[in-house]
């Protein structure tokens, strides 16, 4: 068990002939993922590392079961690609593309909600269930991915793709494996935030604890804190908050589109305070995460 994806998950790559998508496809296949097709309009008949390319998503869903889609197309075409995936019955969609206007993200999320599909991202590296499958660029080449990620009891949710792997690596080094790690995306509006993944982790018997990487901007931590308080979660959560320096510089804007500090939005200090109050442990440094998780696990035994 894990959440969202396991070794039987089949998926397609939209925009498969693009530069990034090609290496993502190779890395995912090498990790054992089942990629059943790729889409690039006008390129039907080609192959990418043995994965057949089609013009439309429908050409693949008509022939075989497709659970998921990784969307790797330029921002201008992302909404169309995601609508295509959703309307062809695909239920889990990882959007890798960054710099998509918020309104279009909202439209994708709204349609997904109507159709019972789930979006991860945009601006994310995807999902990995260590030892079984990965969907997206998370972890990079298969061999690097195996170094950083191992199977185990900790679920990871991270607003930064790179920090997902940094945390996994730190956990692995401390002998703590991961159940599923999700790079949820760095934008202001994302398909699935912390609080929306919690019920899935909660229901997964393999997951015993959660590690979170968080950043300035947005209200996602407040939402998580509320969820934890209201649902009496069985899972100990340890969070790391980056970008604390930004509290001192309102109005600054950083690379991750969601990392915007505006007047009344939560400062990092607010976020830390809220999380602590709901019983979430906040690590001062990444390397404290395993320790804190071990402690919390020992307490709950």
């Amino acid at each position: 068990m894990a959440i969202l994806i396991d070794k039987n998950t089949t998926f397609i790559v939209q925009g498969i002939t693009g530069r990034e998508a090609v290496s993502l496809t190779r890395e995912n296949l090498a990790y054992g993922s089942k990629i059943v097709g790729g889409v690039t309009p006008g390129r039907a008949g080609r192959e990418v590392y043995g994965v057949p390319v089609y013009d439309c998503v429908r050409d693949i869903t008509a022939r075989t079961k497709v659970d998921g889609a990784v969307v790797c197309v330029p921002p201008k075409f992302t909404r169309d690609a995601v609508f295509e995936a959703i309307e062809n019955g695909i239920k889990i969609i990882v959007i890798v593309t960054e710099r998509i206007p918020r309104l279009e993200v909202a439209q994708m999320v709204e349609l997904a909600r109507l159709r019972g599909a789930r979006i991860i991202g945009p601006n994310c590296l995807g999902i990995i269930t260590p030892g079984e499958v990965k969907m997206g660029g998370v972890g990079g080449p298969a061999e690097d991915t195996r170094k950083a990620y191992t199977k185990g009891p900790v679920g990871i949710m991270s607003r930064s793709g790179g920090m997902t792997t940094e945390i996994a690596n730190t956990l692995t080094a401390a002998g703590l494996g991961q159940s599923t790690a999700v790079s949820i995306g760095g934008d202001a509006i994302i398909g699935t935030a912390y609080a929306e993944l919690m019920p899935l982790f909660e229901a997964d018997p393999e997951t015993k604890a959660i590690a979170i990487y968080s950043e300035p901007g947005g209200r996602m931590e407040a939402e998580l804190a509320e969820w934890v308080a209201e649902n009496d979660s069985r899972l100990p959560i340890v969070a790391f908050m980056a970008g604390r320096f930004m509290d001192e510089m309102p109005g600054m804007r950083f690379g991750h589109a969601g990392t915007i500090v505006e007047g009344k939005a939560d400062t990092t200090a607010d976020k830390i305070e809220r999380m602590k109050r709901s019983g979430i442990s906040v690590a001062e440094r990444i390397e404290e995460i395993p320790e804190l998780i071990q402690q919390r696990l020992a307490e709950s035994r």
Partner: peptide, 10 residues
């Protein structure tokens, strides 16, 4: 990278 920079600056 993005998140790494925030973490390292802190």
């Amino acid at each position: 990278a993005g998140g790494g920079s925030l973490t390292l600056f802190d």
